[in-house]
């Protein structure tokens, strides 16, 4: 179901905005999937830059060892 939702989002770019505003129903996926999807959508680097996938890059960026 997660895959189908992502396909919908890719075909309709405005759907992502509706999702962020709570006007796009996320039925059929778990709470963890919902949270991960919303967080991934908030990460503007996600689609265009493979090297920046969120949490792990934050860790990397903070590296000071």
């Amino acid at each position: 179901m997660l895959k189908e939702i992502i396909q919908s989002l890719m075909k309709d770019p405005e759907a992502a905005q509706r999702l962020k505003n709570g006007r796009f129903e996320l039925a059929g996926i778990s709470e963890v999937e919902q949270r991960a999807l919303l967080d991934a959508l908030e990460d503007t680097n996600r689609v265009s830059k493979a090297g920046e996938l969120g949490a792990w890059d934050t860790v990397k960026a903070a590296a000071a060892l």
Binding site: M10, R35, L53, G54, A55
Partner: peptide
Amino acid sequence: VERTGTFLYTSVRMRMHCYN
């Protein structure tokens, strides 16, 4: 890769493991 949402899907799956 962009058109299919491959990064988005993979990012979601990666995050799920982070949350776990």
